[in-house]
Measured scan of single mutants.
Amino acid sequence: MQVTWGNVTVTFSNPEEAKKYAEKVARKLGGQVELHNGQFRIK
């Protein structure tokens, strides 16, 4: 499962870890987490 924002992509084998990481990054950037085609995207 991947977490992407800007031109950065981070890949996780565990979807739960990916979700936690995406939420943490979104909080830092003041963005929203979207699940899109099996990727968490931060907008």
Rank of each mutant, 00 (worst) to 15 (best):
M1Q: 06
Q2E: 10
Q2A: 11
Q2S: 14
Q2T: 14
Q2K: 13
V3M: 02
V3S: 00
V3G: 01
T4A: 09
T4Y: 06
T4R: 09
W5Q: 02
G6S: 07
G6R: 07
G6W: 11
G6P: 02
G6T: 03
G6Y: 08
N7C: 14
N7E: 08
N7F: 08
V8D: 04
V8Y: 13
V8A: 05
T9C: 09
V10P: 00
T11A: 08
T11S: 12
T11Y: 14
T11N: 10
T11E: 08
T11L: 11
T11Q: 10
F12T: 00
F12N: 00
S13Y: 09
S13W: 08
N14G: 06
N14K: 08
N14E: 08
N14D: 13
P15W: 15
P15Y: 15
E16I: 13
E17R: 12
E17G: 06
E17K: 12
A18F: 02
K19S: 07
K19A: 10
K19V: 06
K20F: 08
K20V: 11
Y21N: 01
Y21A: 03
A22T: 01
A22K: 01
A22M: 04
E23T: 07
E23K: 07
E23N: 08
K24I: 11
K24P: 00
K24G: 08
K24A: 15
V25Y: 03
V25E: 03
V25H: 02
V25D: 00
A26E: 01
A26M: 03
R27D: 09
R27F: 10
R27Q: 14
R27K: 14
R27P: 01
R27I: 13
K28W: 13
L29N: 05
L29V: 13
G30H: 09
G30C: 10
G31P: 01
G31A: 10
G31C: 06
Q32D: 06
Q32A: 09
Q32Y: 15
Q32F: 15
V33R: 00
V33F: 05
E34L: 07
E34R: 04
L35N: 05
L35P: 03
L35R: 06
L35W: 10
L35G: 04
L35H: 07
H36I: 15
H36W: 13
N37Y: 04
N37D: 12
G38Q: 04
G38L: 04
Q39L: 07
Q39I: 15
F40V: 04
R41M: 15
R41K: 11
I42Y: 02
K43S: 11
K43W: 12
K43I: 15
